[in-house]
Simulated assay, not measured.
Amino acid sequence: MDLTARTKARVDWVDYAKGFCIIMVVMMHSTLGVEKAAGAEGWMTYVVAFAKPFRMPDFFMISGLFLAQVIDRDWRTYADRKIIHFGYFYVLWLVIQFAFKAPGMIADDGTMGALREFLLAFIDPFGTLWFIFLLPLFFAVTKLLRGVPVWIVWLAAAALETLPIETGWVIPDEFAARFVYFYSGYIFAPLIFRFAARVIERPVEAAAALAVWAVIEGVAVFGGYSELPFVSLGLGMLGAAAVIAFSALLSKSHRLGWLRYCGQNSIVIYLAFFLPMATTRTLLLKTGVIPDLGTISLIVTAVAVVTPILFFWLVRGTRFRFLFERPAWARIERGSARAFAAAE
């Protein structure tokens, strides 16, 4: 395989991995929401449970893969692309989510209670937006720790993951649980890309290894071991490697192009899936046209994934493109002539 082919394969598998992860994230929110509203569980709960150890670890690991290419840039450029970029989308979609949730919040807690929750979201994100809040924090911390030996940072991050940190505040809890995966994506990127290339070269062996991993994952999850200290870290790393291997195999076969496209627009889906998810869930549960909760969860997931993409297509090139493209006034990078920067 020549260099051009390897580069294309690498880009493809990253998009496949992001697509797979964003669908797993939407599936989790959709399934848990349906089951909470119905007061019962469906068969999709087992799929969600199986994916839990690797769902977010792989998402964060992939997010750190290309950091080495930009981490040495000046702070102004770095902050614009890695901190303010995500900050803009967080604030924008926080306001949008609050607009839809406010009536219910006011009914439950009054106007001042709803306003308090909104203001608190600037330091403690609510709903589905915590990933967008945490990601720029990871970028900032990693750059600040640039001068510290990577093995010290990695061991400290791994120790945080194994500790039972449960403050009830999203940011410290999720930072402790996830930073090791983001940092691993950053420092182990060359190894990860070589691993993906090896999978592409040896698909049969990779498929067999994936089967073994699936058995280990299932035993750990359904046997009640997946939340144990060190076990959770090991499953997170193994699961991330499994998703990378699976994605590399897909990139070799050039199948499931729609999944790759979802990966290319994963932030679009992440930002906007909450409304079609809630609407579809309410509609299906109230009408009762589909009695099976697992099937309802699957339909809600599909609608929640597809609708943001359709909406993204609808607003492209219009005055509403600011929903997914950052306008010039929200940029601080010098010398940028672009009026908008896409969500990814």
Rank of each mutant, 00 (worst) to 15 (best):
D2F: 13
L3V: 14
R6H: 09
T7C: 11
K8T: 13
A9M: 15
R10M: 11
D12F: 14
W13K: 03
D15V: 09
F20N: 04
I23C: 13
M28E: 12
H29L: 00
G33Q: 08
A38F: 01
W43M: 00
A51C: 07
A51D: 10
R55F: 05
M56Q: 05
D58G: 12
I62Q: 00
L67F: 02
A68L: 06
V70F: 10
D72T: 07
R73P: 07
R73G: 07
W75Y: 11
T77R: 09
Y90N: 04
L92Y: 12
L94G: 13
L94T: 12
L94D: 10
L94R: 07
V95P: 03
V95S: 08
I96P: 00
F98A: 05
F100K: 00
G104K: 03
I106N: 09
M112C: 09
A114P: 10
L115D: 07
E117A: 14
E117T: 11
L119F: 15
L119P: 03
T128H: 13
P136G: 04
P136W: 02
F139Q: 01
K143D: 08
L145G: 10
G147Q: 10
W151M: 12
I152T: 14
V153M: 12
A159S: 02
E161D: 11
T162P: 12
G168F: 08
I171T: 13
A176M: 02
R178H: 14
F182V: 04
F182W: 06
F182N: 07
S184A: 15
F188A: 14
L191P: 04
L191C: 10
F193Y: 14
A197H: 02
V199F: 02
I200P: 05
E205W: 14
A208P: 03
A211Y: 08
A211P: 01
V212W: 07
W213S: 09
W213C: 08
A214E: 00
A220S: 06
Y225I: 04
Y225V: 03
V231K: 00
L238C: 05
G239H: 00
A240F: 08
A241P: 10
V243A: 06
I244F: 14
A248C: 08
L249K: 08
L249P: 14
L259W: 11
R260N: 03
Y261K: 07
C262H: 05
C262M: 05
G263M: 04
Q264D: 08
S266K: 07
I269S: 01
A278Q: 10
A278K: 08
T280I: 06
T280M: 02
R281W: 05
L284E: 00
K286A: 15
G288R: 09
V289K: 05
V289P: 03
P291T: 14
L293T: 06
L293F: 03
I299N: 12
V300W: 02
I309S: 10
L314E: 04
R321N: 02
F322Q: 06
F324Q: 04
P327Y: 04
A328T: 09
G335P: 08
A341Q: 15
